[in-house]
Amino acid sequence: MDALKSAGRALIRSPSLAKQSWGGGGRHRKLPENWTDTRETLLEGMLFSLKYLGMTLVEQPKGEELSAAAIKRIVATAKASGKKLQKVTLKVSPRGIILTDNLTNQLIENVSIYRISYCTADKMHDKVFAYIAQSQHNQSLECHAFLCTKRKMAQAVTLTVAQAFKVAFEFWQVSKEEKEKRDKASQEGGDVLGARQDCTPPLKSLVATGNLLDLEETAKAPLSTVSANTTNMDEVPRPQALSGSSVVWELDDGLDEAFSRLAQSRTNPQVLDTGLTAQDMHYAQCLSPVDWDKPDSSGTEQDDLFSF
């Protein structure tokens, strides 16, 4: 819950932080000083300027060897085509990944977070970031790969997607708890209302004896509580940590079903599988986004697919 609360507080303090972009060759504004600060901008989305290598189908939802083989196929196909790589912007948030063309600003792909089953910074092609997700059109699994400016960037994108998945799962947990509370309150309110109706004398007997209905007592009954809980029953509950912020979080049926399955089948359902080692994760978390744009010590960066 700490990640969720800190993310909400950060967004309320400075929503404009989320509009910064990394990996864009110096076009961005001043960047936060450390990885923790940038992680807090996830709610509205972190932007990464990358190059799209392509996509291939895979048979399993996750796995280092599986993704490595898929990336190898994608890279080989991209090299064989001889075409310049498409420059894209990857927007990562707890909602998922939005992929747009840098030149036309046209939407290429919009992947809900619950469809993503794996992401990684490839070991062999260490400047490549990739994720595996279920197609929104059918049940097939797709591996999408992107060329980053350097290994640090690939690791940073991988960690960002993993963190977005974690925050999304926490949102789901909060929403589920809130819905259970509202359902319980609604049920209790309905029981109270039913009890009051059972003990209320029939209207005919009131008229016969000349008694008047006590409207004041009726007004004191917990009807307002019942209506408050039943009027918006169809509205999706939102985490309290975000009250007053500009973010509107809505959970669709697909996300609810997917996270429910994860909660039942996995020990740590909030953790998205990645190909990063503990050492890689520690190294990337210690980086400032400013470091992502620094040239690798191995030599001059080449803006070309064939540089790796």
Rank of each mutant, 00 (worst) to 15 (best):
Val92His: 00
Leu305Trp: 12
Ile108Gly: 01
Glu301His: 08
Ser307Cys: 11
Leu262His: 02
Trp35Leu: 10
Ala69Lys: 12
Met55Arg: 10
Arg182Asp: 14
Ser227Arg: 14
Ser297Val: 13
Ser16Asn: 12
Asp296Trp: 09
Ser186Leu: 02
Ile116Asp: 00
Leu159Gly: 12
Leu255Ala: 03
Lys181Ala: 13
Leu17Phe: 11
Leu103His: 04
Glu109Asp: 13
Val92Gly: 00
Tyr114Arg: 02
Ala156Leu: 11
Ala195Lys: 06
Val92Trp: 01
Gln20Pro: 08
Thr200Gln: 14
Arg95Ala: 01
Ser112Leu: 04
Gly63Ser: 13
Ile98Tyr: 05
Gln279Phe: 02
Leu11Ser: 15
Tyr283Met: 05
Gly23Cys: 06
Phe48Ser: 01
Gly8Met: 00
Phe165Ala: 02
Ala258His: 08
Pro61Met: 12
Ile97Pro: 01
Glu33Pro: 14
Leu193Thr: 02
Gln240Ser: 12
Leu276Lys: 09
Val192Ala: 06
Leu42Cys: 10
Val226Ser: 08
Ser224Val: 04
Ala263Ile: 06
Arg27Gln: 12
Pro15Asp: 02
Leu43Arg: 15
Glu235Cys: 07
Asn34Cys: 04
Glu109Met: 06
Thr230Asp: 09
Arg39Ser: 06
Gln106Arg: 15
Leu276Arg: 03
Asp122Cys: 00
Glu250Phe: 03
Gly244Arg: 11
Ala7Ser: 13
Lys204His: 07
Gly63His: 01
Thr38Asn: 14
Trp172Val: 02
Ser49Cys: 14
Gln139Lys: 14
Lys91Phe: 06
Leu47Gly: 01
Lys79Asp: 00
Ala164Ile: 04
Lys184Arg: 14
Tyr131Arg: 00
Gly190Trp: 02
Asn34Gly: 09
Asp191Ile: 02
Arg151Ser: 13
Val161Glu: 00
Arg95Gly: 08
Lys204Ala: 13
Asp253Gln: 09
Leu99Gln: 15
Pro237Gly: 07
Ala80His: 12
Thr100His: 09
Gly54Tyr: 00
Asp37Val: 08
Leu213Trp: 03
Gly210Ile: 06
Ala195Ile: 03
Ser307Arg: 13
Ser245Ala: 11
Thr100Ile: 07
Val88His: 01
Thr230Phe: 11
Thr89Val: 13
Thr36Gln: 12
Ala185Thr: 12
Gly23Thr: 01
Phe259Ser: 02
Phe48Asn: 00
Ser245Arg: 10
Val226Ile: 12
Lys150Tyr: 09
His282Arg: 11
Met46Phe: 03
Glu170Val: 05
Tyr131Leu: 01
Ala219Asn: 10
Val236Asp: 10
Ser112Arg: 07
Ala185Ile: 13
Gly23Phe: 04
Ser112Thr: 15
His282Lys: 15
Asn268Ala: 07
Asn138Thr: 15
Val75Thr: 02
Leu11Met: 13
Pro269Met: 02
Ala80Trp: 02
Leu43Met: 11
Glu170Met: 11
Gln279Met: 06
Lys181Phe: 13
Ala7Tyr: 13
Phe48His: 04
Glu217Val: 04
Glu217Trp: 01
Ala195Thr: 13
Asp234Thr: 07
Val161Ser: 07
Ser6Glu: 12
Leu90Pro: 00
Thr218Cys: 12
Ser135Asn: 14
Val207Gln: 09
Ser117Asn: 02
Arg29Glu: 07
Leu53Gln: 00
Glu44Thr: 08
Glu178Asn: 07
Lys123Asp: 05
Ala68Trp: 01
Leu31Phe: 15
Leu141Gln: 06
Ala154Asp: 00
Glu257Asn: 04
Leu85Gln: 00
Asp198Gln: 04
Lys19Phe: 08
Ala219Gln: 11
Phe48Arg: 04
Lys30Gln: 12
Arg27Trp: 10
Val58Ile: 14
Arg182Phe: 12
Leu103Tyr: 06
Ala154Lys: 00
Lys127Gly: 00
Lys179Phe: 06
Leu43Lys: 15
Ala69Arg: 13
Ser21Met: 06
Phe306Tyr: 08
Lys179Arg: 15
Glu217Phe: 03
Val192Tyr: 02
Asp191Ala: 10
Glu109Phe: 02
Gly244Gln: 02
Asp252Thr: 09
Pro94Trp: 04
Asp293Cys: 10
Ala185Phe: 14
Asp2Leu: 01
Asp126Asn: 03
His28Asp: 15
Ser67Pro: 01
Gln285Ser: 13
Leu255Arg: 05
Asn34Pro: 05
Met233Glu: 05
Asn105Thr: 05
Gly96Ala: 08
Glu180Cys: 09
Ile97Leu: 12
Val226Gln: 14
Pro239Ile: 08
Leu212Ser: 11
Ile71Thr: 06
Asp183Ile: 10
Ser14Arg: 15
Ala278Gly: 09
Gly244Leu: 07
Lys184Phe: 14
Asp122Leu: 00
Arg9His: 14
Tyr283Gly: 09
Arg13Val: 10
Ala263Phe: 04
Lys62Pro: 04
Leu213Arg: 15
